[in-house]
Design a protein around this nucleic acid. Structure first.
Length: 261
DNA sequence: ATGCCCCCGGTTCGGGGA
């Protein structure tokens, strides 16, 4: 089962690139972030025409997450279970069959950016990561394969950013954000990318400004975190840089992993 | 030090992104 994650920065604008990605990468499940559209504006028919079903949690203009899949999604959860009165569209999860009698729980999540550090936005980011960790403890108790996929807006180490000094006080690199991310991972999750790639300076995001893509000056902030049962089955993981090179690209590019059945 | 670029809608600027 091939599972991909991609912050598309508007699913409507990026639809041609998304259709290309589906055709070229042939994923079974795709986790989207920053869809930036209401659910009834989601381009479901165009995706259905190439064999994908859609489960979406959107809002107007900002945020928005979705799951695309070849097989039907079951037990769809919209929003973190412990989200209280937080109505920002940042989490959707569902269970998918692996085609061999097994099942995998997949979440598409979009952690708040949190800039500038030290503001209420930063506090919201840290609180959101804490809520995600609390929910992850419940998921772990189920002892099943699951993948928490998405734009974490956290650059885990200085090896994951082109200029750690320039970014040290950014909300993506701040110690508090890294600490919350580490606490999440240390519950027992595995960073799928680092199972297969140990080299530093591999990125999933390149800012639109200042020619960052052309200089390969980016950050690794999109992650696939695996439960122990999923980590035992992971057969491959990589970043697909091709979509970022296109005209009118998202500032993020897809990351994917393959779980062996 | 700031902005560069991109997307959205209350559109022709400001908010948010990261």
């Amino acid at each position: 089962m091939k599972i991909a994650s991609w912050n598309v920065n508007s699913v409507k604008v990026r639809l041609p690139h998304l259709l290309d990605f589906l055709k070229n990468a042939q994923p079974d499940v795709v986790c989207l972030q920053e869809t930036k559209c209401l659910d009834d504006e989601f381009p479901r028919l165009e995706l259905q025409a190439v064999g994908y079903r859609t489960e979406a949690l959107g809002q107007r203009a900002y945020n928005g997450v979705a799951l695309l899949s070849r097989e039907p999604a079951r037990e769809v959860a919209r929003g973190l279970p412990n989200s209280g009165d937080d109505d920002q569209a940042r989490y959707i999860a569902a269970t998918f069959g692996d085609g061999n009698g097994g099942e995998v729980r997949v979440a598409s999540l979009y952690v708040p950016n949190g800039n500038p550090a030290g503001t209420d936005k930063f506090a919201y980011k840290l609180q959101w990561l804490a809520r995600l960790a609390a929910h992850t403890e419940d998921l772990l108790a189920r002892e099943m394969p699951f993948v928490l996929a998405g734009d974490y807006n956290v650059c885990p180490t200085d090896e994951d950013v082109y200029d750690p000094v320039a970014w040290r006080d950014d909300a993506l690199c701040r110690i508090e954000a890294r600490s919350r991310f580490r606490a999440l991972v240390h519950l027992g999750l595995t960073d799928a990318y680092r199972v297969f790639h140990r080299e530093p300076h591999r990125y999933t995001f390149w800012d639109y400004q200042a020619g960052r893509w052309n200089r390969d000056e980016g950050l690794r902030i999109d992650h696939l975190l695996l439960s122990p049962q999923a980590a035992d089955r992971v057969a491959a993981c990589d970043i697909d840089k091709a979509p970022r090179a296109k005209e009118r690209a998202s500032d993020h590019t897809p990351i994917w992993c393959e779980l062996a059945v």
